[in-house]
């Protein structure tokens, strides 16, 4: 409760912004996709090529087409957001961040007796 009260009214938390963006962008992409797909594809003509045992009307075809594209776009944008959020932060490539790259040296530096043999 304490944490919530500190939030400024009308401002969204990062998680809310992420979810909102993911859903809305996926919806837009699915709309465009549905337009393009059904502009060149007649669901009535699809009936002959349909393989599953129940029959599909054109209305159902439009709806399923949209929902399918929406699901696919949702998965893609949610995964993208997830990968970016959980990935390394800014400055990672320049060696910044929580963890510096591990320090290494020649094995024999500290262990003069170590016989590395053929895999030196």
């Amino acid at each position: 409760m304490k944490k919530q009260s500190r939030e400024i009214p009308g401002r969204w938390s990062q998680r809310k912004r992420d979810i909102g963006t993911v859903v809305w962008v996926a919806f837009l992409a699915a709309c465009v996709g549905t337009f393009v797909v059904f502009a060149v594809l007649d669901p009535e003509a699809l009936n002959d090529a349909w393989v599953l045992p129940w029959e599909m009307g054109s209305r159902l075809a439009y709806s399923l087409g949209f929902l399918f594209l929406f699901c696919v776009s949702l998965i893609a944008s949610a995964l993208t957001t997830f990968m970016i959020r959980t990935g390394p932060r800014r400055g990672h490539a320049r060696g910044k961040g929580k963890k510096p790259p591990p320090v290494i040296h020649a094995p024999e530096d500290e262990n003069p007796d170590l016989d590395l043999g053929d895999w030196k």
Binding site: I104, P107, E110, N111, P112, D113, L114
Partner: peptide, 25 residues
């Protein structure tokens, strides 16, 4: 820590890792 082969690791207060960093390499 690094060590010479004949060093007694218990006397030197060392564990088994000789810090050769080969696992990183």
């Amino acid at each position: 820590g690094g060590r010479r082969k004949n060093v007694d690791k218990q006397e030197a207060g060392l564990g088994d890792c000789i810090n050769c960093t080969l696992c990183v390499q």
